[in-house]
């Protein structure tokens, strides 16, 4: 039961045949080899698979690839531009906001949506914005600092 879809990912358009049940996360990882989007759970809890769908953070493990037909998707691979890290990427490195790196793409993607609507958040707001993303390494301490640091850079 195949469906043809066309999705623009990180600025490039892809047309592929997918099964109805193919999750957007699997589509990105398997069909497009964009393995920066990670899958950490099966109940939409961990947020490692977060990407931007038409500019909004979504859990790509809970969206069917067919639902994204005609949409624009941005993944972690599309964040750096012209070889320059996105401010969030730079701040995660600067503030040691990652250890194993597995949750990091999801953290960065959700933070980019969050900062778009709340460019100058306080610490508590940042913590609450990460409700849908688990990190087991950092205790979130430096992730919070990294997002604050990126917010400062981006609104400067």
């Amino acid at each position: 039961m195949s469906n043809q879809i066309t999705i623009k990912v990180n600025g490039k358009s892809y047309t592929r045949e997918v099964e109805g049940r193919t999750l957007l996360a699997s589509f990105l990882r398997e069909d497009l080899s964009l393995t920066g989007t990670h899958i950490g759970c099966d109940t939409s809890g961990c947020g490692a698979c977060t990407v931007l769908l038409d500019g909004k953070a979504v859990k790509s493990c809970t969206i069917l690839a067919v639902q994204a037909d005609g949409a624009t998707v941005k993944t972690i691979e599309g964040m750096a531009e012209n070889g320059n890290l996105h401010p969030l990427q730079a701040s995660f490195k600067e503030k040691h906001g990652l250890q194993c790196g597995f949750c990091t793409p999801g953290m960065i993607m959700v933070a980019s949506d969050f900062l778009a609507s709340n460019p100058k958040p306080n610490e508590q707001e940042i913590r609450e914005s990460l409700e849908g993303n688990f990190c087991r390494c950092t205790g979130y301490h430096n992730i919070v600092l990294a997002i604050k640091d990126a917010a400062d850079t981006m609104s400067a």
Binding site: T50, L53, A57, V58, V110, D113, E131, G132
Partner: peptide
């Protein structure tokens, strides 16, 4: 409800 990602969808 849920989190940012869940509320978006």
């Amino acid at each position: 409800i849920g989190d940012i990602q869940v509320r978006n969808v």
